[in-house]
């Protein structure tokens, strides 16, 4: 059960939201059938939703599948019960990150997305070079994967040749408001 003592009110709020979203699911499995990465998932979407319906939020959020999800919205688009399955996957990821249950491999996605948001918080817009640098460093510290560290290194010069690299990223003028938005959203 997910209502363990480790849960904070924030966990409960996300779980509440997920259960609300999952309520109408009648387990036809169309989400899993159409999922472009369904074959890679350890627990397919309809089973994740079932776990949520049964109150096993933590178990669902521990599945590797939620980090395979590409947020393509196919499940939501085709659901005969109008269940926003993609939003449920988001809720599971949010829950999982709060609990820190993601494995090192899954963590790579979390590290990337955290680095992404950090970047936005500071500049209001994405600074790609800095994002990649931070992501690679943190990902390396996470799983010590050397191939990962140097992967795509060859792309750099090619991108520079095509004028696709901006060493100095853009910044918005009113960065304070961006910081305040992040604060108000508890990020």
């Amino acid at each position: 059960m997910s209502n363990e003592s480790t849960n904070t009110p924030k966990h409960d709020a996300i779980e509440q939201m997920a259960r609300e979203l999952a309520r109408d699911c009648y387990q036809c499995g169309k989400c899993s059938a159409g999922c472009p990465v369904g074959e890679r998932m350890d627990v397919v979407p309809n089973r994740l939703i079932r776990l949520i319906q049964l109150g096993h939020m933590a178990k669902a959020a521990a599945a590797g599948a939620i980090w395979e999800c590409v947020s393509c919205q196919t499940c939501t688009a085709r659901c005969p019960q109008n269940v926003d399955c993609a939003a449920i996957m988001d809720a599971l990821r949010e829950f999982s990150v709060l609990r820190g249950t993601a494995s090192p491999e899954q963590n790579r996605t979390v590290i990337f997305q955290r680095a992404f948001l950090d970047n936005i918080r500071r500049y209001g817009r994405l600074n790609e070079v800095e994002l990649i640098g931070r992501f690679k460093t943190k990902a390396f510290l996470n799983d010590l994967s050397i191939p990962m560290l140097f992967k795509d290194a060859l792309l750099g010069p090619q991108m520079i040749r095509r004028g696709k690299f901006h060493l100095r990223g853009e910044k918005v003028r009113d960065r304070d408001v961006v910081t305040r938005i992040f604060e108000k959203c508890n990020q």
């Binding site: 169309k30 899993s32 369904g38 397919v44 089973r47 085709r78």
Partner: peptide, 28 residues
């Protein structure tokens, strides 16, 4: 197969039916 079909496409005279078997928990 217990589950719905999500999409059907046609390739080389075959209909590719993408469904699921929720009892097995796998796409079919």
């Amino acid at each position: 197969h217990r589950g719905r079909v999500s999409k059907i496409t046609e390739e080389n005279g075959k209909l590719i039916v993408r469904g699921v078997d929720t009892l097995a928990g796998e796409p079919v």
